[in-house]
Design a protein around this nucleic acid. Structure first.
Lengths: 162, 162
DNA sequence: TAATACTTGAGTAAAATACTCGGAATTAGC
DNA sequence: GCTAATTCCGAGTATTTTACTCAAGTATTA
């Protein structure tokens, strides 16, 4: 299991999804604005998330993405795994260049270690994160900002007409 | 805290060092042969390890590297941290360009998460790995129990935070 | 039918990774 | 002192990953 910024992006996006799950499908454009992640990059990430059945898409106007399961059933580990997908965990895959079998022992040690970290992240669900005070605070501010942005855009559009 | 193959290389090398610590200094050439890691890459990694005072070098013929402390005092986390050194964990460093100057949604989350994983890896020392390596064929069950114990402790810590 | 929004694929710049090379500096042993 | 073994050091490079852009689709609904 690898832990990079890619997984963080994915978790952030999924968390945004969970936070706005009561408002119908959430468009990637909204997530992009709120979280500052490029739309096209989100598209790639959500292609993976969709493939792993963590989200489902709703097409057409007013469409977007929804969580496939409830936030309580989606763990951070699942999200990270979906976008990481490094099956080539180590070089000691199968035979590889394991000299004298000694390296293979290290290989197993790392496998176990990864399993433990994986287990650790599996204990944390999106629902856990949504319940956190700090996240709710930040989320509320982000929502305000998005609304203001929309208002501004509308205002600009109106003034152009008039 | 990031988890990539780079850290695995470092841990593997340090484990090799610990396993042969009773035979005087271990040359990087030996580690390179045994573990199948390029010599020059090992040199780079050990420059970091040396800088972080995890190993000390002995120059000249018959020289090599020694553990600075005993294997029981060196944790996996220390090794991984030494070679990773990406203090700039995310865009959310301090205030930085988190997201338009504001703390981003998962800022606190990742901080806590990193701390927990770090704590988890801090529980595992090189001595643990060496011991586990020795008795692997004899009693893998006991090793599993040891790792599980660590996991349970971590789990408790996590639930306290969330 | 037109607008919305997902979907797909190709391409790309920047960074990290993993490694190579060429040489230094240091030191044990002859 | 000479030589070989070894750590050190800096520069360079190929590969992969990351993060992103662009462009052309397709599906859905108002």
């Amino acid at each position: 299991m690898r832990l990079t910024t890619k997984g963080r992006y994915a978790v952030t996006a999924m968390l945004d999804l969970a936070l706005h799950s009561d408002q119908g499908p959430v468009s990637l454009a909204d997530i992009s604005q709120r979280q500052g992640i490029s739309l096209s990059y989100l598209e790639q990430l959500f292609a993976r998330l969709r493939h792993f059945k963590l989200v489902k898409s709703v097409r057409g106007p007013g469409g977007g993405y929804r969580l496939m399961s409830s936030a309580a059933e989606v763990s951070v580990a699942q999200v990270v795994d979906a976008v990481s997908e490094s099956l080539d965990a180590t070089r000691c895959e199968g035979k590889g260049n394991c000299h004298e079998g000694e390296v293979c022992l290290t290989h197993h040690l790392w496998e176990d270690l990864s399993a433990q970290i994986h287990r650790f992240l599996s204990e944390i669900t999106l629902a856990d994160l949504v319940a956190r005070n700090d996240i709710q605070t930040v989320s509320r501010r982000q929502d305000m900002r998005l609304v203001n942005t929309h208002c501004d855009e509308t205002h600009i559009a109106v003034s152009e007409i008039l």
